[in-house]
Design a binder for these strands. Structure first.
Lengths: 166, 166
DNA sequence: TATTGTTATACTCTATAACTATA
DNA sequence: TATAGTTATAGAGTATAACAATA
């Protein structure tokens, strides 16, 4: 009941001070919470552009890999091909990208960005960059770079790749 | 097609080299990918103990806040009260914790860990710590501490809290 | 036989809303 | 009226499995 009293006086605060101290010692939990915050904010940032995090990611990959197939997009984004269909449907319906036939293999679609899609990307890219700058304003530029680096190395370590293949 | 060729020779690799370079410049995307890896591995680590990430987190909070109410647990974990019910049901069914009546307020449940629950926690805590050590073996201890710190500060910045309340 | 894209389906996690019993 | 817990339901996001067309 001392706990309920404190949280009653500060109901919106992210938990009573240190009430999840034990839990926060785990990196996994911190990453999970950070991810929730970031994804929520990303969703808000993308909504005015008619994008979700999934379609934003797909657009980014197609922009830098023109003509990529849906299977390869599936590999890059680490989602199943059936999930790619939904994302590509949505982007194609919005006029952002197109499925084009590939000569030599009639099974495959080559994904290409439309002119409108490229214009959209330029705006969205800037919006997300600005947004992240605000979200991470508690860190200076060097710290953000460090965070990048640490996450990249943590998620690319031989061990985690090895476990993924099991 | 150069892309499909490469990914055909290394199908399980996390994407062709740099094919998501543009996307990876966003911290949000890195955190998302890191989170996916970590949560998958956490799930595997917890499964032998009959726990999921949700029940693990709840157990941790109840361990460090004996007698906490479900509403306060809901605040600390940032999930809705309806979600807490499911988690507590599962933990109570497993004999890990108990709902106890609170004298003075018959609406409230005081959550307490059983002896078996405490024994389980000691084992699980060690398993998860060991597991994270392996998962983050690409980083040294100081770097892990830095990662902790940066995530904590990024997710606790005044701006992100402010946006949360809107 | 294997692969690309597709569809249908199911599962997990979480949110919303309505309800009850208490306060 | 407001709060604690509960129930039912619905929505993302993603996974699995089966299928048609093509290789």
């Amino acid at each position: 009941m001392p706990l309920s009293k404190i949280s009653a006086t500060a109901p919106k605060a992210p938990g009573t001070p240190a009430s999840d101290m034990l839990l926060r010692q785990f990196v996994g939990y911190r990453v999970k919470r950070a991810n929730l915050l970031i994804q929520d904010d990303m969703a808000k940032t993308l909504e005015p552009f008619g994008l979700r995090t999934g379609t934003f990611s797909a657009l980014a990959v197609v922009i830098s890999n023109p003509g990529i197939s849906q299977s390869d997009l599936s590999d890059v984004l680490n989602i199943k091909r059936s999930g790619v269909v939904v994302v590509v449907d949505e982007l194609e319906r919005a006029g952002v990208l197109k499925r084009k036939p590939v000569k030599g293999d009639r099974r495959t679609n080559a994904l290409t960005v439309t002119a409108a899609g490229r214009r959209l990307w330029n705006k969205v890219e800037k919006a997300v960059q600005d947004h992240e700058a605000v979200l991470f304003s508690g860190l200076d530029l060097e710290e953000i770079a460090t965070l990048h680096d640490l996450l990249a190395r943590a998620t690319k370590s031989p061990i985690s790749d090895l476990e993924k293949e099991q």
